[in-house]
Structures are given as C-alpha cells and as structure tokens.
Write a protein that binds this DNA or RNA. Structure first.
Lengths: 343, 343
DNA sequence: CTCATTAACGCAAACGTTTGCATCAACTTT
DNA sequence: AAAGTTGATGCAAACGTTTGCGTTAATGAG
C-alpha cells in the first residue's frame, strides 16, 4: 500500500527508529541524517499513519464535540449559537494541532453512544460538551471515564468536579434589565423558553434582582415562557391586554426576539418606538434583523475558544485545577430600544 | 491500561481471535461461545480500540468534511448553509455508523494541509468538500490520492472524474428570474458575491438565459458583485442612480439579501412595494427576516444527505459510477416580491 | 470402519508507529 | 594510554486488533 516508515528507512539506509525520530525532530539525530531522511521521505511521498501513531502513543490529538441535543431537531445546527461556539473551538484547536470530531446522533441515546464510542474507542483525547442539562448521562460518563473534558454552560450536578465555561447569566440578565431601567422603563417583561434549563432560571433571577434594586416588586404577569413559536402570539396578546402593558422586554433568545418583533409589528406597534426589546445572544440574527436588536453579547466564539483551551490544558496537565471560566457578557446597544425620557 | 481483547480472551478461556470474531459476530463462532465471551466483555467493561482496528482494517469509518474557505472569516460557520449541509451529512453518516471529522483551518493553505493530514494520515475513509472553487488544490489532491470523495457544488475542472451533488444553479436562477418576469418586472438586477465561484457564474448564466428568452438584452449595469458588506451600499446607490433603476433583484445569498433589504429601507424605499427581492438559499435568515424573503429553496439539508450517500457508496463500491446528483431547487414565494401589474 | 467434510476454534503474522535500552565509535579527561 | 563521556544510531518489544491458515473433533457418506 502506502509508503511506510520502513520503506523510508530502507531507502535511506537507516533504521525505522531513526526515521521515526526524524519525524519528531529528535535532537538525538544528526542534522546530516535528518536531511538525508527528509529527502527520501519527500521523494517517496511518505506520510505518517496517524492510526498507528495513535495506537502506540495512546493519543490522537483529536477532541470530540458533543452537539446540543434538542427536542426540536431543526434548532440544533441552525441555531447560530452552535456554529459560533464551534468556530471558537476550531480556531484554538487548530493553533494546537488538534483535530475535531463531532457527534452525529439525533436523540439523547444516540448521542450518548456516540460519546462512548469516541471515548472508549480512543478516538479522542478530550471532549467538549455543548450544553448543560439536568439528569444527563454524558457528564457522569465522562467523569467515570476520567477523560479530560469541559462543558459549556453550567453543569447542574457535580459542579465542583467538572471544568466549565459559561457566562454569568444572572449578572447578564441583571445588566440587561438595569439597562432598561436606566432608560426609565418601569414595566419590563421577561420572556424565556424552557424553564427547565438552568440558563433560563439564572436569567430570570438576574431580571428579578435588577427590579428589586429599584424597588419594583415581582409581577408574574410580566413573566412568560414560550415553549413553541405559537406561544409568542398568545404571550404578546396577554402582555398587550394588561392594564399596564410592558414598555420593554427582556427576551432569552434571538430567535424568539425576531419572533416577538414580528408579532409586535402585527399588532401595529413599532420597535423601539412603542416597545423596547433586549435579547440574549448577539448573533447573526440580531445583526440582520431590522431594526438591529439590542442584544447581550455572550461572546459565543470566546466561549468555544476558552473551552478548547480548557480541554487541551487538561490533556497536557491532567492535574490542572479544574477552574471554571466565566466569560463576561455585555450589552450591545443597537436599534431596538429607546429611552422613555427624551433627556 | 484499558481492558483489551486479550484480557477478555484470557478471562473467557478462549483465544484473542475468537473474541475478535465474536465482536464482528462471525458465524464461525458457536452461540454458546459468543454468549460466554459477551458476558465476560460486559463484566470487564471491554470496549474496542478503534485505533487498532483502524490500523489493521485500513479503514476508520470516518468521513472528513472540508469546510468552505472564505476570505471573510466570519461568514464561514455563521453561514447557515454550512450548518444545514452538515446536518444532512451527519444524519446519513449516523445511519451508517460513520463518524465525522471537520477541518479546522482558516486559510486556504491551512485547509489544504488539514485535508492532507486526514487523508494521508488515514484518519478518514472518504471526504466531502463543501465548495467548488476554481484553481483549488484540494480536489486535485483528492483525485491523486484516489480516495472516495464527493464535492458539493459543481467542480469546475475535472468534472467527469469527480462525483458531485449540486443544484442546477443555471436552472434555478433562470426560474427565479422568470418568476420575476412573470410578475411583469423587466428591469431586474443581479447581485452575487465572489464571481470566482462557479455557483455565481452559473446563476448569472441562468439569469441571463431567462432574460434572453424574453428578448431582454444583457445590461452590465444591472449586474454587480459584492465582495464585502460595504459594497452593498455602493451597489445599491449605483442601481438607484440609474436612469431606469431595477424594480427587482435576484440575490445570490440570504445574507446579502437582508443586507440589501436594509439598504433599501435606508433609501426610504420599501420591499416589496418599491422593489422586489428574490434571494438564493432559503434559510433561517430568510424566514426571520421582515418581510420574509421570497427565496430559492436549494434544499441544503438534502444536498448534504446525498453527498454523504455518495461517499459512503464510493467507499463500499469503489467502482461505482461517479454519477452526479442534482437536487432540484424551487422558489418559495414569501413576502418580498410583488407583481408590477395589479392583476 | 475408513475417509472426506464441516464446524469451531487457536496460532501467528501482520498493520505502522514509538521508545527504552543497548551498542559503538569518537572524543575528553586524567 | 586507559577510562569515562558523549553523540548517533540500531534492536526489538510493545500498542490492540484482524485474518489466513492450520488443527482438532465431530459428523456424515460409502
């Protein structure tokens, strides 16, 4: 088949071990020999077999990515969040010569076995988990397998045992709400998706905290969760039928953001004239939206980049302290908000 | 380290070869032995080492994906096209037990060496190339290496030697243009991105063809290429300053579509009242845009799915006829166009 | 009862690297 | 000049599978 290290060795009149050492640029080999061997490698068109190397080195210089599993299949990849995170991971991995392998499973069970295959099959040196979910089997498995990994998002359960990178969602939501308060909004609504995610709980908490600081009491009528896109309509209806409809909204996803935007228009109202909107996650969507959405930049790319830094560090120094990285989020004022007071 | 086939063999009182055959469920092994061995595997927590298997089988059941390279880094992953294609690939790969590995390179050179590494390093059994570009080194390399691969898009050069899956971009653009012509538009503009991509050339050709059928001659003033987002402004300016500005536009990417949408609004004009817009690639973006963009559904997911079908077929039957698959594209009328004639 | 057939399994050689240890020549040192 | 040191390379055993071929015992045919 292909030309192997032995072929090169034979042609260069050296031993296979010498060739191997030339490949890894060992300092035990004389420059003359290196030159000679390299020339032969060139001539023969040699390329290393990474399977063989992986076998003996017990390392493949590959990291696996566990893609987010979502009931709503379409939202997986389409969700720009995933893309951007992977961008970040990819960038850092490349800098360190690591390859990337991704899960292909669609259901929770499939994904789990993908992970097992990657890890036990020794296909990867480390893993990055793109979500944090209650009662998930992946994280416990990875802990058990004692393979380096980091999760993006805040793992609910064994938080002190795993390294994770996340935003401070409480703080971010607090900031977002405070931003609106500073613009003299007093009636602020909150829209989140599935409240079973920790993210949503945290953001809700931050939202409440900011209100509290201003002495505004919790108003359940201002807080809604949309489980599927159709809910948006109902929710907006309810909001607008209130005696005092909210003048501003904090929304936990860009997709919902544009959805709400559209419903608002349908009601003959305008953003930001009639109602201000701040959404979580600055993404392509918030940029191409008209008006551009004032969004919380959670620095998704950076999230991925740091996660990658984490695993690779863990791979090289397994005893690294499992520090957790908080990526700061900051609000990026665009066009979907306005101050209630014309200064 | 981990428990190997030999450990299992020892514990089960059989030879390693027997264990191996149990794993592959060989019919040369008695059911009794299989049961026994499987039980031991279970007890010992055995899992196969895919590196070792890859080494001897000369196959890893992994396919590599060459991500599109773009000068404008941000457009890579963010571009929903890529995400959807990968979704399709991923789905089919999973059905056949194949894993996925993606390139991490940012520049053309980096990507090329990623590919070489994957292929020569025997990390993958086949490849899918997510773009077709003139004077690209990847496709020639893959041909040379004689590894199964399929490109998504129409390879310009050695078209009869490679298997590809693509839309009929000429036809699609022709349809799109005809669609507008049917709505009594006569002054139709075309906006594409990098004209070095075959896609753009094809779409341009289809655009011209449709016009020709109506006896409308080519007008270079109506055809523009935007290389970076800032160009959109200039282009629109030029269009609008024409004596007869276009009443409709065919745009080759959803991202550009929303960009142009915004610029049009900036000029105090409205879509579709003042100008109709049809964009290529129905994606999340075109759906969340306001108004929803009338788009050509190129069935991106299907593109990926078929590509995957292609490689895996080539892997199993190397002598498969290198058929090329054309995924039909059809226009999905939404809200960004109108007829010039009030019926 | 002998011989050919088959079913079930073991042997051992690959697959292409890496790496600890041994070797050996050429230099230093004393 | 002998002993020790250093530098450059080779030997051979791993790494964990797969698989062609050989062996054995049981079965069937004649």
């Amino acid at each position: 088949m292909a030309v192997t290290i032995k072929d090169v060795a034979k042609a260069a009149n050296v031993s296979p071990s010498t060739v191997s050492r030339v490949i890894s640029d060992s300092r035990h080999i004389s420059d003359k020999t290196k030159k000679k061997v390299r020339k032969v490698m060139e001539e023969l068109g040699y390329h290393i077999n990474l399977n063989a190397r992986g076998l003996v080195r017990q390392s493949t210089k590959t990291i696996g990515i566990v893609l987010k599993y979502s009931e709503n299949e379409a939202w997986n990849w389409i969700n720009p969040f995933v893309s951007e995170v992977i961008q970040g991971i990819s960038a850092h991995c490349h800098e360190h010569g690591y390859s990337i392998m991704i899960t292909t499973g669609r259901t929770e069970k499939e994904i789990y076995s993908d992970v097992v295959k990657m890890v036990q099959g020794k296909q990867v040196d480390g893993m990055i988990v793109l979500y944090a979910r209650k009662e998930d089997r992946v994280v416990p498995f990875l802990l058990e397998a004692a393979i380096p990994f980091v999760v993006i998002g805040k793992p609910v359960d064994r938080i002190h045992e795993v390294m994770y990178v996340d935003n401070d969602n409480v703080q971010a939501a607090k900031d977002a709400t405070a931003f609106l308060l500073n613009q003299y909004h007093r009636k602020i609504g909150f829209i989140g998706d599935n409240p079973s995610f920790q993210v949503i709980q945290d953001r809700l908490e931050g939202y409440y905290k900011a209100l509290e600081l201003e002495g505004i009491s919790k108003n359940p009528a201002y807080v809604k969760f949309v489980q599927n896109p159709e809910d948006e309509e109902k929710i907006l209806d309810k909001f607008l039928k209130l005696e005092h409809p909210p003048t501003a909204l904090v929304i936990s996803s860009p997709l919902q953001g544009v959805g709400v935007l559209k419903r608002i228009l349908n009601h003959g109202l305008h953003v930001p004239e009639d109602i201000s909107v701040v959404v979580f996650n600055k993404t392509l969507i918030t940029e191409v939206s008209i008006p551009k959405l004032t969004a919380i930049d959670t620095q998704t790319y950076q999230l991925g980049y740091e996660a990658s830094k984490g695993v690779i560090e863990l791979i090289h120094y397994p005893d690294t302290f499992k520090r957790s990285v908080i990526i700061s989020a900051r609000i990026e004022p665009k066009e979907s908000h306005r101050s209630l007071q014309e200064n």
